[in-house]
Amino acid sequence: MDCPVPERRTVEYRDPDAKVFGEIRAAARPVILKGLLADWPAVRAGSESPMALGAHLAGFATGKPVRFIVAPPERGGMFFYGDDLTGTNFEAREAPLTELLHGLLHWMDRADPPAMAAQSLPEPVAVPGFAAANPAPAIVGSAVPRLWIGNAAVVQTHHDMFENLACAVAGRRRFTLFPPSATKDLYVGPFERTLAGPLVSMVPLHAADAERWPRFADAWAEAEVADLEPGDALYIPYMWWHHVQSFDPFALLVNYWWNPEGQRRQPMQALIHAMAEIRDMPSDQRDAWRAMFDAFVFDDAAEPGAHLPQTVRGIQGRMDPQTSAAVLASLAQGMQRQR
């Protein structure tokens, strides 16, 4: 599947120290960390052969079934919705990891294989011991590694509500990235029926019809591309949209998701609640609530309650995780009473 490539390329770094990576995170832009994982045994095994990498992974497999998805060859390697958007163009299966690895190796030399992918397998469950043999970069802290194993396939543009370090272990991958500001121009699919949890764009990069998706041109103007070779990693900031294309018949990516320690918030629920309560109000009332959100949620210039004594600021002041949890619990109780 041929997809266009943005002109802008993601900036590359080599061996950034903690101070430099702090600056990278503060800038909230993607960066490629070249060769970050070059010393991993898994990367070395993958550079030797797919069979060697398969054996490396199989050595940690528990024998428990793992979930993976399969799309028929006529789908061109793209995992997406079915034609009427009520289902998907792929099916989910389960098998021990060793069987999945055997299947991928079996299809490697076939001209028209099905697209296969095990997505987001948590290391402690699927391959305990992999992380000890292939230690996490220091920048991800205590984040749990997750494995993405498959062949040449396309994962449609989506975003995650985490910071993300995506590590290419075997196989070449291309990430096409869009900032959160492009959301309105990406034609987001159904909230209620996603492909795997995160929201996805409905615009296929290989067929971005300008008549059907006219605003996508504005999103494309903000896009950038990150090409990863085995051993490279990509830092994806919070909520950045990314389209992922794998080019090789046997590929492994390990990623780490994290958010600030102790953060357990559910901003998507707040968005959905606002959509239900505010979006269909008359325009003058929506403007009034836009001003309220700007003043109490999105104003970075000042703390809204700074004019009040600390003892009575309440939710206008900065909230620690415990206070935030108490406020959310109170809201949940109030919504329950309204039913």
Rank of each mutant, 00 (worst) to 15 (best):
D109F: 05
G103W: 05
L101H: 06
A95V: 06
L101R: 06
H106V: 09
L101G: 06
E99P: 02
A95M: 15
L101E: 02
A126L: 05
N89R: 06
E94I: 00
A111T: 13
E123G: 02
D112A: 13
A118H: 10
A95W: 05
A111H: 10
P122A: 15
W107N: 08
H106P: 00
G87Q: 11
E94L: 02
T86N: 13
N89V: 03
A115S: 11
G87R: 06
Q119T: 09
G82K: 04
L105M: 15
P122W: 09
L104Q: 08
Q119L: 15
T98H: 01
D109M: 07
Q119Y: 07
L101V: 14
L101A: 00
P122Y: 10
M108F: 01
A111L: 11
G82R: 02
L85W: 11
L97E: 02
L121P: 10
A92P: 08
D109Q: 08
A126E: 01
T88L: 03
L105P: 06
A92H: 10
T86C: 13
G103I: 04
S120D: 12
E94Y: 05
A92Y: 12
F90W: 03
G103F: 12
E91L: 13
A92I: 14
V127W: 02
A118F: 07
F90H: 04
Q119F: 14
V127N: 01
P96V: 07
L105G: 05
D109G: 11
F90P: 00
P96R: 07
P96A: 12
N89L: 04
Q119C: 08
E123F: 05
G103D: 14
G82F: 03
D83G: 02
H102D: 15
V125G: 01
H106S: 12
V127L: 15
G103P: 02
V125D: 03
R93L: 15
P114H: 10
P114C: 01
L104H: 05
E123N: 02
S120V: 14
L104M: 08
L85P: 00
L105E: 09
R93D: 10
R110T: 14
D84I: 06
T88E: 03
R110C: 13
A95Q: 04
A115R: 09
R110F: 09
D83E: 13
H106T: 13
T86Y: 06
L85V: 06
P124C: 02
P122L: 00
A115Q: 03
L104V: 11
M116L: 15
V127Q: 01
P122H: 07
A111C: 07
L121M: 09
M116S: 06
L97C: 13
P96M: 08
M116F: 07
P114K: 05
A111Y: 00
A115K: 04
W107M: 09
H106R: 14
A92M: 13
D109L: 07
P122S: 02
E123H: 01
H106I: 00
A115P: 04
Q119N: 00
L101Q: 02
L101W: 06
F90N: 05
L85K: 15
V127S: 08
L105D: 01
T98V: 13
A126H: 01
G103Q: 14
D112E: 12
L101F: 00
V127A: 15
A118Y: 07
L100N: 11
R110M: 11
F90C: 03
A95K: 12
G103H: 10
T88W: 06
A115V: 10
L100Y: 03
